[in-house]
Design a protein around this nucleic acid. Structure first.
Length: 671
DNA sequence: CCTATATAGATTTTT
DNA sequence: TCTATATAGG
């Protein structure tokens, strides 16, 4: 055993690390060394002779999973294979075993993201009601109800009927499910749901999984929903070797069905649960901790606990009001400059906000000033139109039944094929029970389809045959080849006069090809399907580089599990925190937890900013400081210049110059 | 029957 | 500011 495995641990941490068999609950406050405990425990198990692949650790985000993997590898030199998100673990299970469920789907399934789901829902509504859905919100609201039902394990058959709207959702839900089965597609919820179904139906599989995964670990247990809870129960073998960690005060996903009662009830679920509470904070200053403790105590529904720390007192939190979002960004920029004069690297600073849209004003300022930054999340790379287009082609190669992908393939450039033709194709494919793309590629396409075939359709079918002829392996070559066959780059080049983003789109496509080659280099034996899964479930994390010397920007949700010496939380104002859609009491408590999460990310300093006015959709709206600010004890906070923002002048001038890698900024006297 | 253009309408958080 | 839908042209 590596000798340092048990070094520098407190007694409680040691207890959690060296626990081997039976259920364990670790209630881990923010900054209490939870990751350290979990990773050391995995390493400890391995050092005690547990085979790394017998450990299944599930997290919510890829960031958390990757960090866990890396740190275990540092400790024992092996990266356990089964450390990943709930979704990626289930995707791997289903690639292997989905066919055994016998619902018509198999391991080549496509994973649909929300826009794909929308497209399916719209098609279902049209089919059922003969009319288009009105706008995006309609499909969206139906989808969110379907998702809620799935996460609560409610099948279409028992979906609550009553109001006409309920009945309607129930009908769409049913059609939606059927449609996904037909297309050999699953949505995010299905990844978990179908795994649950599979394990419920097949005791033989359950036994196999139990013997394969002798130790189960679940991170951020307070964020599990019923579906994830059910999955946990099914994966837990008879020995109850399940180890969960979490913090009820950091539960911020109730909108996704998370129920922190899961963590409250864990010890009741499993007899003989050992409970360890980690309440010493190693991350933050006394002041930061005092502020966050006071804040979270305003929540009524909560497990009483109070974190303490031996760290220094540190400096007060700074609160700064700005006249608008532009000024807010400039204030933050100034805070960054001040830190830079103390030689603090940019990698030690982060800006958090409630909504992704808020990143814009910061980007504009940092771009102008020349501060390198990276944004975590936001418009995901693979959700961009051009990327979805190229992905659709690749998807179709792997899953010829994927109608959503075919629609994109048809629609992304002039093919001469439209809705009517597509409907005809689909009808025929269903009739003949052939995957629609196979029908198109078939050498006797004309005979199969029958009737008059427009020249354009014949051309398209011939083109499909070319596409299908592209070798699938190796992945990088395949992606480059497909891009060439599709000619998307030329499409955008021709569109450059109408689409101002055309150049970016071409760059993105090139970046996508690069990514495919990188993937191939990292996993030479991987298939196209593996690559697509990676893109659907894990691609974005790789974009965030914790070691890069640049500033990080992300939502408060994304910040969970991370830490930074210096944290800025922007938009601490009514309307954002709490968000205007979360004014209900219970919702406000979650918003408070969100700010709590943000503040407790910080090691040394925190700056909270808000705007008094803000442009929303081009309209100037009055805003005001968040109610949460008044909950911070006065002695922990300095109100910096909130009264005296002389004129907020659009002419605050910021210049940047580089010298020796250091940035210097000059401001005029408005500062 | 398909394609390009204009116009309204939309943003919470994530796998 | 950006995207999806309505509409008219080809």
């Amino acid at each position: 055993m590596p000798s340092d495995l048990l070094d520098n641990l407190t007694e409680t941490q040691l207890e959690a690390v060296t626990h081997i068999d039976g259920p364990m609950l670790v209630v881990a406050g923010a900054g209490s060394g939870k990751t350290r405990v979990v990773t050391r425990r995995i390493a400890y198990l391995i050092s005690k002779g547990v085979w790394p692949n017998q450990i299944l650790a599930m997290t919510f985000t890829n960031k958390a999973a990757n960090e866990m993997k890396e740190r275990v590898e540092q400790l024992v030199g092996v990266a356990p294979r089964w450390v990943g998100t709930f979704h990626s673990a289930c995707a791997k299970f289903l690639r292997q075993d989905l066919e055994k469920l016998g619902d018509g789907r198999n391991g080549n399934f496509t994973i649909y993201d929300s826009s794909d789901q929308q497209s399916v829902v719209k098609a279902c509504v049209k089919e059922l009601e003969g009319t288009e859905t009105s706008g995006r919100t309609n499909a969206n609201s139906i989808l969110s109800r379907i998702s809620r039902a799935k996460c609560a394990l409610v099948p279409p058959a028992t979906f609550g009927k009553g109001t006409p709207e309920d009945d309607r959702v129930a009908r769409v839900y049913k059609a939606y499910e059927k449609s996904l089965r037909q297309m050999n597609a699953v949505d995010f919820d299905d990844l978990l749901l179908l795994t649950v179904k599979l394990l419920e139906q097949r005791s033989d599989l359950r036994d196999i999984y139990h013997s394969r995964f002798r130790y189960l670990l679940i991170d951020e247990y307070q964020d599990t929903n019923r579906l994830q809870y059910r999955l946990m129960r099914l994966l837990t073998g008879p020995k109850h070797n399940v180890h969960v960690t979490g913090d009820p005060d950091q539960s911020i996903y109730s909108w996704r069905g998370a129920d922190y009662r899961n963590i409250m009830d864990f010890a009741k679920d499993f007899e003989n649960t050992r409970v360890v509470r980690l309440e010493q904070n190693y991350r933050s200053t006394k002041t930061i901790l005092a502020a966050s403790n006071a804040l979270i105590q305003n929540n009524t529904k909560r497990f009483e606990k109070e974190l303490f720390t031996d760290n220094d007192r540190g400096v007060q939190l700074t609160v700064k009001g700005a006249d608008n979002e532009r000024m807010e960004a400039l204030h933050v920029a100034q805070g960054i400059v001040t830190l830079r004069t103390r030689r603090v690297p940019l990698s030690e600073m982060a800006i958090f906000y409630r909504t992704n849209a808020q990143s814009r004003s910061f980007e504009e300022v940092f771009m102008r000033v020349g501060v390198p930054y990276q944004i975590v999340g936001g418009v995901r790379f693979y959700e961009r139109k051009e990327i979805k287009d190229i992905l659709a082609h690749l998807t179709l190669l792997g899953n010829p039944r994927d109608v959503v992908a075919l629609k994109r393939v048809v629609g992304c450039r002039s093919t001469g094929v439209g809705d009517k033709t597509l409907a005809r194709l689909l009808a025929r494919a269903n009739e003949a029970d052939i995957p629609v793309f196979d029908l198109l590629c078939s050498s006797d396409f004309k005979e199969l389809l029958g009737g008059r075939i427009p020249r354009k359709l014949a051309n398209f079918a011939a083109w499909c045959r070319d596409l299908a002829g592209v070798p699938r392996i190796p992945v990088g070559e395949c992606v480059r080849e497909v891009l060439g066959v599709v000619g998307l780059v030329d499409v955008y080049r021709n569109k450059s006069d109408t689409d101002p983003a055309a150049e970016d789109r071409i760059e993105n496509l090139e970046a996508f090809v690069d990514r495919a080659f990188e993937f191939e280099a990292a996993r030479p034996e991987a298939t196209l399907a593996d690559f697509l899964e990676d893109v659907a479930l894990v691609a974005d994390v790789d974009a965030w580089d914790s070691s890069a010397d640049c500033l990080s920007l992300m939502t408060l949700h994304s910040s969970k599990g991370l830490e930074f010496p210096h944290v800025f939380v922007a938009g601490v104002e009514e309307g954002y925190l709490p968000h205007q859609n979360s004014e209900a009491d219970w919702a406000v408590e979650e918003e408070r937890r969100l700010l709590y999460v943000g503040i407790t990310r910080a090691q040394k300093s925190v700056m909270l900013t808000y705007a008094r006015q803000r442009y929303t959709w081009g309209r100037l709206e009055p805003r005001g400081p968040s109610r949460f600010l008044s909950e911070l004890p006065p002695e922990t906070v300095t109100y910096d210049g909130t009264e005296d923002d002389r004129n907020d002048s659009e002419d605050a001038k910021v210049d940047a110059a580089t010298d020796d890698g250091e940035l210097y900024y000059d401001y005029d006297d408005t500062w």
